[in-house]
Design a protein around this nucleic acid. Structure first.
Length: 420
DNA sequence: TCTGGGGTCCTAGGACCC
DNA sequence: TCTGGGGTCCTAGGACCC
């Protein structure tokens, strides 16, 4: 059996941990740049706030219902996520962390008589240790565990746990779920399925294999079998090395001078280099892209990207900035209002596997010592305390984040003050 | 004023090779 | 009627996830 433990409205719940007065009140968290709602408490859902809705279109609802709005604070959420996972991990010998707020537990080979009891214990312990509410779904396959979890959230709010064992249990949750709510079936396939009269997950499981294979590829076929109770999705207990690392941001405002775009791209490149070093990896290829704001029909539109090889795989900030700017210089054209840019590093290899070319004249030992020192300083004094000159000083491209909470658990200067 | 960011996998089609 | 066949690699685009 497989359990899926999922944090309820995770980012909104994180904000509540440090402001308990928000319990029972509507809370939402916005995406980067204070763009869209990406976490919505039940109370905020109840007053009509929808996932992904742009903030500027919800101003009336927010004012009218006194919705508490937060900018996203990924440092805080990342730290609380780690604490949740540490607690959940004690309940099974093997765990696969699937995302910042979800983890699968492998119960195979464990003597568990009452799974509902186990689920309840997980929920209670996480709430007590970290303060985050979770739901638990337990079933024979990952896809069914996801559905069971959803079932628990929708129909057993107080308990927050649902166990699926028998054929009848499976049928019950399949008939309850719409096809669009199945993990692995997105909006496109859901529409296609609805068009041929398939509305529920149960009806989907009644389709012939061949139809699913033909119209939804092997991925859809796997989902089908998982829903019928046969596990087909492999465990990934160790996270595999990433194939690409991307840093991209919308700017806080439209930008039409090249120097500012260069500073933004340099900062994104620096962030990719930092992520590579944290992963102990190097990249031998880099992509840069820039684009205008597609939501402004009055503006001339522009999108270009470029991919370049890096002769010797690297994770050095200065080197990656160098190539990023080289690429930007090729694709940049004057006369547009730019809204977004990004840097992607790919062809990633472990640091110790880097092949050095014969004509390589860069002093890599010295460079890596500089990077180590830079990371050490920035670790203590905050990211970007020391940076490469190309990243600029003013950060005119900076995102909006007007309602940012504190880093309560990771910064000494932002600890919570308690008055007794 | 204003619409996120970071990933994965699969498939089809073109280029190229023998 | 019909224009070789079979393989690999790369890329773009589309689907999905949180």
């Amino acid at each position: 059996m497989i359990a899926l433990v999922d944090c309820n409205n995770f980012y909104a719940s994180c904000e509540r941990v440090f402001q308990p007065k928000l319990e029972g009140k509507p809370v939402i968290v916005l995406s980067n740049n204070d763009g869209c709602a990406i976490a919505i408490s039940d109370e905020a859902k109840a007053v009509g706030i929808k996932m992904g809705a742009p903030a500027f279109m919800m101003e009336d609802i927010i004012k009218q219902h006194k919705v508490n709005v937060f900018s996203s604070n990924y440092v805080l959420y990342g730290d609380l996520s780690k604490r949740v996972m540490d607690t959940v991990g004690t309940f099974a010998s093997r765990m696969e962390i699937y995302s910042i707020d979800e983890t699968f537990l492998d119960f195979d080979g464990m003597e568990l008589h009452d799974l509902t009891k186990v689920g309840t214990a997980i929920k209670k312990t996480v709430k007590q240790n970290v303060g985050i509410p979770v739901s638990v779904g337990i079933a024979p396959s990952k896809t069914l565990a996801k559905l069971a979890n959803r079932f628990a959230k929708k129909t057993k709010k107080q308990i927050g746990v649902h166990v699926v064992k028998t054929e009848d249990d499976i049928k019950e949750i399949l008939k309850f779920a719409e096809v669009k709510d199945v993990w692995g079936i997105g909006a496109q396939h859901a529409k296609r399925l609805n068009d041929i009269g398939v509305k529920t997950a149960y009806e989907f499981t009644q389709l012939p294999d061949e139809w699913v294979r033909k119209n939804m590829s092997v991925v859809g076929l796997r989902t089908l079998k998982e829903l019928r109770g046969t596990p087909c999705i492999e465990w990934e207990f160790m996270p595999p090395r990433k194939k690409g690392i991307c840093t991209s941001r919308s700017f806080g405002k439209l930008i039409n001078d090249k120097k500012t775009v260069e500073e933004a791209v340099s900062s994104f490149a620096a962030n990719c280099a930092l992520k590579l070093r944290k992963d102990n990896s190097c990249a031998s290829s880099i992509q840069v892209f820039i684009n205008t704001n597609q939501f402004r029909p009055q503006d001339k539109q522009y999108y270009r990207s470029i991919k370049m090889q890096i002769p010797v795989a690297t994770n050095s900030t200065s080197e990656i900035i160098h190539y990023a700017l080289k690429g930007l210089n090729i694709i940049y054209t004057e006369g547009y209002n730019f809204m977004k840019a990004g840097v992607v590093v790919t062809e990633i290899v472990p640091h110790q596997n880097v092949q050095v070319g014969i004509f390589d004249d860069i002093n890599r030992t010295k460079n890596s010592m500089v990077m180590k020192t830079l990371d050490k300083i920035n670790n203590i004094y905050g990211k970007d305390m020391v940076r490469i000159a190309a990243q600029g000083y003013e950060k005119k491209f900076r995102m909006r984040a007007q309602m940012l909470s504190q880093c309560y658990t990771t910064r000494f200067d932002q600890l919570l003050t308690i008055k007794i």
